[in-house]
């Protein structure tokens, strides 16, 4: 019932790690003068050929880059935003030629779909949603889930995007407290998971909109972010990061955690804590999980990578050219890691 039982993974010493496990494949520099905020990779059809493209987001422009045979990247399209800055890219899994972005200042104010005209000739953007949006996630089957608050209540909305960006809407039953993050549940079709501001995990049935369960996961770490959820043998396994975790000695600073939840009883146990190697300082700033690998940008400006099966940190990538890392994403098209700096440099490992 308590996550106090969490085991600490073997924590290797800092000097046994290096970025040698990561090979720099290519680099691209966004010449836009504004601050770089996010990166993603997706398939895009260009002149009849599907290419594994990179999407970069600066404050007021999102660009699509096509790979060249030389290992370099060519900018193909850019979408510009005049008034509200971009906060994050919202990738749509399993979708070609469509990406969404969240725009706002401190909180998300708008979600837009970015696409091209049917002849591939010009960039189009479609306003999908406005409001005080707390969380958004692209789901399989061209669906987008978002939660927003009005003065009285919270709305959790699923949009199914049709060709051209127009959409169908459906609402999920909202929990009382604000939803912070969403995750689809691998292994259980039509299950959607959310983390809330009160340290609860909620589960919905995407087909019926029912709120199935609310489960408290303990108060050890506040405001947890859910990066991955999968269902196996009747249990729900959830990978969380802990932006508010305090540094703990001597075991190190917990950055990610794997917990197991029994959805029938709402009981949970901690399975593994993923800590920084000894000698490394820092807390989670932002990160990404794909398959059994987790990557995080730390407050120290370093990127750390964990193998979730081995249970420990396998690589550390210190700041390059005296520039701290500011975001990191796993590629959706291959096994690449995309690491970005505020000045527009994107390194592909």
């Amino acid at each position: 019932h308590s996550i106090e039982q969490t085991e600490l993974a073997d924590v290797p010493a800092c000097d046994s790690l290096n970025p040698g496990n990561l090979q720099l494949v290519s680099k691209l520099k966004n010449p836009s003068g504004s601050c770089s905020v996010d990166v993603s990779a997706m398939w895009w059809e260009i002149a009849g050929v599907k290419e594994p493209c990179i999407i970069t987001a600066c404050e007021y422009a999102v660009s699509l880059w096509k790979p060249l045979d030389t290992g370099q990247w060519e900018k193909m399209y850019s979408w510009h935003f005049a008034e509200v800055p971009v906060l994050q890219i919202v990738p749509m899994p399993d979708v070609c030629n469509l990406v969404c972005v969240a725009l706002g200042n401190l909180e998300i104010r708008e979600i837009r779909a970015l696409l091209c005209s049917s002849d591939g000739g010009c960039e189009k953007q479609v306003l999908l949603r406005t409001g005080n949006i707390h969380a958004v996630l692209g789901l399989t089957k061209r669906r987008l889930v978002s939660s927003s608050r009005t003065l009285c209540d919270q709305q959790v909305e699923i949009m199914t995007l049709a060709e051209g960006g127009s959409e169908e809407k459906q609402f999920l039953m909202p929990p009382e407290e604000t939803v912070l993050t969403f995750a689809e549940v691998q292994g259980t079709q039509e299950a959607l998971l959310g983390t809330t501001i009160m340290n609860n995990i909620v589960i919905w049935n995407l087909k019926t909109g029912q709120l199935l369960k609310k489960m408290h996961i303990g108060d050890s770490y506040q405001a947890s972010v859910c990066h991955k959820a999968y269902s196996e043998m009747g249990l729900l396994f959830v990978v969380l990061s802990h932006p508010c975790a305090k540094e703990r000695e001597p075991s190190g600073s917990p950055v990610f955690q794997l917990i197991a939840i029994n959805p029938k009883t709402a009981l949970s146990v901690g399975v593994m804590l993923y800590c920084l190697p000894q000698g490394q300082a820092g807390r989670f700033l932002e990160g990404d999980v794909k398959d059994h690998f987790a990557a995080a940008v730390l407050t120290s400006g370093t990127i750390a990578i964990w193998d979730l099966l081995l249970g420990h940190c396998t690589a550390l990538l210190p700041p390059i050219s005296d520039q701290n890392w500011s975001f990191v994403k796993w590629s959706g098209t291959d096994s690449h890691l995309l690491a970005g700096q505020k000045d527009g440099n994107i390194f592909v490992y």
Partner: peptide, 23 residues
């Protein structure tokens, strides 16, 4: 983690919770 910590487990938890939850 031991099964005893988590109570009785059901492989069909999603269907069971969907049939129990309010529509």
């Amino acid at each position: 983690c031991s099964q005893a910590d988590l109570g009785p487990i059901s492989i069909n938890w999603f269907e069971e919770l969907s049939s129990e939850a309010p529509p």
